[in-house]
Design a protein around this nucleic acid. Structure first.
Length: 284
DNA sequence: CAATGATCCTGTCCGC
DNA sequence: TGCGGACAGGATCATT
């Protein structure tokens, strides 16, 4: 379930791998996965990648010819870079860390992003929720929903969050998952942030103290920064574009844990149709 | 506008 | 062994 740190990790891999290269074709293998802006009237290909950005959980790849490729991985989306070398016969590549069994992935390839003769990127997505849009760059905002501030930007501060929670009596967990409040958080990181902030996910958002709001902002920054530095959380099947895992799953304190770091039992409740993990002795 | 629930989808897991 | 059902959950839509 890619959230902001996982999306940033994928983007980092893309910008490294695609820099200086061109997009030469975009093929959809599952109806609805690829959406083309009707304002694109003639083929923009080939087009060099000239910008690599992230907004919330959206990946934005700017291309020449005033076009932008937008990718949202949703639940199970995965981008897989496939190198097409002339000589792939030597066995050393297969034994490299990060190699993967492509044949087991082929069943769920929903789109192919063709670069050049030497490589392509496959969009693997078993549950088909993911999307790829190709739009005119000036239309990018029309293809993105309304999103709150980036949690790592200065604009996401206690004053802002205080204002947003003031009229929300829903549990703080639900409010932090709302992408219009803050962009990029998902189920894993909200659980971790609230644990570190010592706040129960069940607390009504409008009942938080100023101190707790400050704490949530601070821990949001901290948790996301740590997770990005560790290339995200590979809890189910998240992988980087070279199939390497992230490392942050080793540092989760409550998400899918039976006990918190203090040794107290972690309980699991259901909120807004999703699991929340928290420690009732550490979080109030 | 806020809150809630259904929906989309398929691999995996559990109980019988 | 196999089958039905629950579950995983990001975003969107409909309803209250």
């Amino acid at each position: 379930m890619p959230e902001l740190p996982e999306v940033q990790t994928v983007l980092n891999g893309l910008s490294e791998t695609l820099k200086g290269r061109s997009l030469s074709a975009l093929v959809c293998h599952y109806e609805g996965t690829v959406i083309i802006d009707p304002e694109i009237t003639r083929s923009p290909f080939p087009a060099r990648f000239i910008g690599f950005h992230r907004r919330g959980k959206y990946i934005l790849l700017d291309l020449e010819n005033d076009t932008t490729l937008i990718v949202h991985l949703r639940m199970t989306g995965k981008l897989i870079f496939v190198r097409r070398d002339k000589e792939r016969t030597c066995g050393d590549e297969a034994s490299e860390e990060g190699s993967f069994d492509l044949s087991s992935e082929l069943k769920h390839i929903r789109a192919t992003i063709t670069l050049d003769k030497r490589g392509l990127v496959l969009f693997n997505d078993p549950r088909t929720f993911g999307k790829i849009w190709l739009c005119r760059t000036e239309n990018t905002d029309k293809y993105l929903p309304v999103l709150g501030p980036e949690p790592l930007d200065d604009s996401f501060d206690a004053a802002y969050l205080g204002k947003k929670v003031k009229n929300r009596k829903a549990p703080v967990k639900n409010v932090l998952l709302d992408q219009k409040v803050v962009a990029g958080l998902g189920n894993i990181y909200v659980s971790e942030i609230l644990f570190r902030a010592g706040v129960s996910p069940e607390r009504p958002a409008n009942a938080l103290s100023a101190k707790e709001i400050r704490q949530i902002v601070k821990e949001t920054r901290q948790v996301l920064s740590e997770a990005i530095a560790l290339n995200g959380t590979s809890i189910s099947d998240f992988r980087r574009i070279d199939d390497k895992t992230g490392e942050f799953q080793n540092y989760l304190r409550v998400y899918q844990r039976s006990h918190c770091p203090q040794g107290h039992p972690v309980i699991r409740i259901r909120q807004a149709g999703r699991s929340s993990f928290y420690c009732p002795r550490c979080q109030h």
